[in-house]
Write a protein that binds this DNA or RNA. Structure first.
Lengths: 222, 222
DNA sequence: CCTGTTCCTTAAAGGATGCTCAGGCAAAGC
DNA sequence: GCTTTGCCTGAGCATCCTTTAAGGAACAGG
C-alpha cells in the first residue's frame, strides 16, 4: 500500500514516514503543495495525507485539483486544533477524513485503515478463498494454519489480495509494493511471486495466484 | 507500562513520578492542561492520571478531548475532598476512576492496577504458556521456579506478556518500556531481549519470544 | 515447426538486520 | 571510598532477506 504524505515540517514528516513504514506502507514525502500535487497526479497512490498549512499551493487546493482530475483516492488532511472552518471546507473540497494536530499515531493508523477498507466491507481482515491476511498483525492464515512471510512477501500478497478479482499489472505492483517509479528491467516480481506460490502451496492454498501473460497477476476467489 | 501525569503542584507531581517509577512505570509529567492534552494525544499511554484543578484547560476538558479523539486509555482523576459534583461530571466525561486528595499512595497503586487489568480478566497475574508474571510483586515464575529479573528486564517482559499474541514493534517497545519518543538507532532492545531469552531458557521457558524481522517481537501462548 | 518473447526457477552475491559479547558508566549498597 | 549491580553502547559475527542474473520452460505468432 502506497501513501503520499504532503507535509512541510520535517519532524512530523519524518515521524509519519518512519511510523508508516514500520506498518509496511510504502511512503513518499512531498514538502510543499506544488510538488505534492505533481506527485499525486503523476503516480497512483492508495492514500494521501495532506497538511492543510503548506507553502505554495494550499492543502485545500491540492485536494480540489486532485478531485478535478478524477482521482478518487482517499485523502486524509491534517489540520490545526479547533480549525472548524478548515474541516468544513476540507470535506467540501473532497477530503475523505481529517485529523487534528497534535494527534495520536494510533488514531491516524485507525483512520487510514478505515479509508483503505472503503472498498472492502469485511473490515480489516482481507480474505481470498481459504486465505486470510491481517494487515494489523501481519499474520497470514490458510484455513487455520499460519504462513510465515518476510516483509516483502507480505506486502506483495497484501496488495494482490486487496485488489483481488482485478488484474495487477507489473508496473503497478512494482510501484505499490517496491515504490519504484521508473521503468526497470528487474525480475524481482517473478522471484517473489515464486516465493509466495511455494509457501502458499505448502500450506494448502495452491493455485490462488494466476498469471496474466504480458500483463501481470490476479488473485481470484475460487 | 507508560503513564502520563497531568498535575500542576510540583510537590505532588514529583511524589507521583518517583513513586510510580519505583514501581517500574515509565512516567511523563505535564504541568498544565494544554501541554497535558497535547502529550496525551500525541503519544500512546497506558494510563492517564489527571488533576481536576489545573491551569489552562481543565481536567474535565482534557478528559473530554481525549475521548473525543477516540482514545480509550484508562483515566484516573484526582479531586479535592468532598467535591461530589466533580466526581459525577468526571465519570460522565469519560473518566475511568477517581481518587480524592489527599490519598494513600498504596490506594492509587491499587486503582491503577484495577484499570490496567481491564483487558485482562485473569486479574493481576499475567500469563503466557508456562510463564507467569506478577506486576504487583514483580515476581516471574516459570512453572514453579522463580526467575530473577532486573527492573528493565521485568518491564520489557511485562509489556510483551501484556500484549501477547500481538506484534510489538520496536518503536512501541522503546516508547512504552524506555520512554524514548524520538527515533534512535540504539540496540538496547536487542540486548535486553537477549538477556530475557537467556534467563527464560535457563528456567525452561525457552522459545517464547519470537522475532519478527524488521518489525519487532511477539510472545505466543503455544 | 521455428522463433522470439515472456515467465518460471534456481543459485549465488550483497545488503540489511538481529544476536552476542566485552567493556564503560552511573547509581546504590556496604 | 570501594564493590556490586544494573544500564547502555559499539563492534564483530551470524543469519536472514533482497535482488540480480542466467538457463530453461511455456507460450504465441508467423
Amino acid at each position: 500500500m502506497r501513501i503520499l504524505v504532503i507535509e512541510d515540517e520535517p519532524g512530523i514528516a519524518r515521524f509519519l514516514k518512519d511510523g508508516l513504514e514500520e506498518e509496511y506502507f510504502a511512503v513518499d514525502l512531498a514538502f510543499d503543495g506544488k510538488n505534492g500535487l505533481d506527485m499525486a497526479l503523476l503516480n497512483e497512490y492508495d492514500l494521501l495525507i495532506v497538511d492543510w498549512m503548506i507553502p505554495g499551493i494550499s492543502g485545500i487546493e491540492v485536494c480540489r485539483q486532485v478531485r478535478k482530475s478524477g482521482i478518487d483516492v482517499p485523502l486524509i488532511f491534517l489540520t490545526a486544533k479547533d480549525a472548524l472552518d478548515d474541516i468544513v471546507f476540507g470535506l467540501d473540497a473532497g477530503a475523505s477524513d481529517y485529523i487534528r494536530k497534535p494527534f495520536a499515531f494510533e488514531e491516524l493508523l485507525a483512520r487510514i485503515r478505515v479509508q483503505l477498507r472503503r472498498n472492502n466491507p469485511a473490515g480489516d481482515q482481507l480474505t481470498a478463498g481459504r486465505l486470510s491476511v491481517n494487515p494489523v498483525t501481519h499474520q497470514v492464515l490458510c484455513g487455520t494454519g499460519e504462513i510465515m512471510l518476510t516483509p516483502k512477501e507480505f506486502s506483495l500478497l497484501e496488495y494482490l489480495v486487496r485488489n483481488k478479482e482485478k488484474v495487477c499489472t507489473r508496473s503497478r505492483i512494482i510501484e505499490h509494493v517496491w515504490d519504484i517509479h521508473f521503468d526497470s528491467d528487474t525480475s524481482v516480481i517473478d522471484v517473489y511471486i515464486n516465493f509466495l506460490r511455494k509457501k502458499l502451496d505448502q500450506a494448502g492454498c495452491g493455485n490462488i495466484i494466476q498469471t496474466i501473460r504480458g500483463v501481470g497477476y490476479i488473485i481470484r476467489e475460487s
